[in-house]
């Protein structure tokens, strides 16, 4: 949503809002049911992402330790893969990952400026070199997302303020989304990316303190900005992660405020996550978010070196 408001437009909006039937929005609560990374398996250090496959098995990107840690559906440690380095299969402070419909993993190997592809059991398959920016800055992939329907791989290039669009069939980058700026679909240090069921793209635009959504359509791709700058309810200070539930509601984590807020996919604020007693639910640097197939919300608490699992209630 643009900050540029002309008087006629504002008056029209005011009339529309006044004329709209008032819609009831209930509080959204979350009940903590498990913690991953403490008690089973190796100690996590500053984890940055989490994914769950169709069998409920959990993958945590333990970036400072340069590895992906694999847990079973009960959160018990199974194995891990990756180590520090720049050879195939090695990582340099990776920050994000995505999973395709086959359960294979794409890892944004940030420090090595590449995306690596692994089988579901952690075998290295191949990697994708990323294009350098026009002024020579090297790519800085911080997150990836897969559109299995359209065979698209989206790579967040943080330092270059873009989302690179890779055609998995043609095996080449075709275009990008964003670009440095504050207007419309422009981005400043985008960090995370998630797709909803329709393939709509949600990008956490950290310094613009918003989450921007884009349509998969190549021509009219910018859709909406969700959230705005501030430290009050419905406002974002350090948005870091985003996840979309099966109601197409958008969950946004704020690592500094330590909260998760919920919006509809057009940017309307719905609620901040509360605990079962209706109190503000606080997290320690909540970063990436992920919904599994059961609708459980996984929250990466980076500075607490853990992933917490919540059941959403209303």
């Amino acid at each position: 949503m643009s900050y540029h408001l002309s008087v006629p437009w504002f008056l029209c909006l005011t009339l529309i809002l006044v004329g709209m039937p008032l819609q009831a929005v209930g509080a959204i609560t979350a009940k903590k049911i498990a913690t991953i990374g403490i008690g089973s398996g190796p100690e996590l250090r500053h984890p940055s992402d989490v994914l769950v496959n169709s069998r409920g098995e959990i993958f945590v990107l333990d970036g400072v330790n340069n590895r992906v840690v694999h847990y079973d559906a009960q959160g018990q440690y199974l194995n891990q893969f990756g180590k520090g380095g720049s050879k195939p299969g090695e990582f340099n402070n990776p920050l994000g990952m995505a999973m395709n419909r086959d359960g294979n993993l794409y890892v944004a190997d940030t420090g090595n400026s590449r995306v690596q592809f692994f089988s579901s059991d952690g075998q290295y398959l191949h990697h994708i070199e990323l294009p350098h920016d026009g002024d020579g800055r090297k790519p800085d992939p911080t997150d990836v997302a897969i559109d299995d329907v359209r065979n698209k791989l989206y790579v967040v290039d943080n330092d270059n303020h873009k989302v690179l669009v890779y055609d998995l069939k043609q095996k080449r980058f075709k275009r990008y989304i964003g670009g440095m700026g504050m207007k419309g679909g422009e981005l400043r240090w985008p960090f995370s990316i998630k797709l909803d069921r329709q393939g709509r793209i949600f990008v956490v635009d950290v310094i613009n303190t918003t989450v921007k959504s884009y349509l998969p359509d190549e021509k009219r791709h910018f859709d909406a900005s969700i959230g705005k700058w501030g430290v009050e309810r419905g406002e974002l200070f350090r948005p870091k992660g985003v996840a979309i539930d099966d109601r197409d509601e958008v969950y946004i984590s704020d690592s500094f405020l330590g909260v998760i807020q919920v919006f509809d996919n057009q940017g309307r604020f719905l609620s901040v996550l509360l605990d079962e007693e209706g109190q503000l639910l606080k997290f320690i640097t909540p970063t990436r978010l992920h919904f599994d197939q059961k609708g459980l919300l996984y929250v990466v608490e980076m500075f607490a070196h853990r992933v917490t699992l919540y059941e959403i209630g209303r």
């Binding site: 250090r45 500053h46 940055s48 970036g63 400072v64 402070n93 920050l95 940030t110 420090g111 911080t142 943080n158 240090w189 960090f191 950290v206 310094i207 430290v231 009050e232 309810r233 406002e235 200070f237 350090r238 870091k240 704020d254 690592s255 500094f256 405020l257 330590g258 909260v259 901040v272 503000l280 640097t285 970063t287 980076m302 500075f303």
Partner: peptide
């Protein structure tokens, strides 16, 4: 508010630094 405002008017404490140096702007975690 979603947080308690600090009393001191210093610009940044450690967690303020971390909020950008967690990889979202620069990665200083290690």
């Amino acid at each position: 508010l979603l947080m308690e405002m600090p009393e001191a008017r210093v610009a940044a404490d450690e967690m303020m630094c971390y909020s950008c140096h967690d990889g979202s702007i620069a990665d200083s975690r290690f």
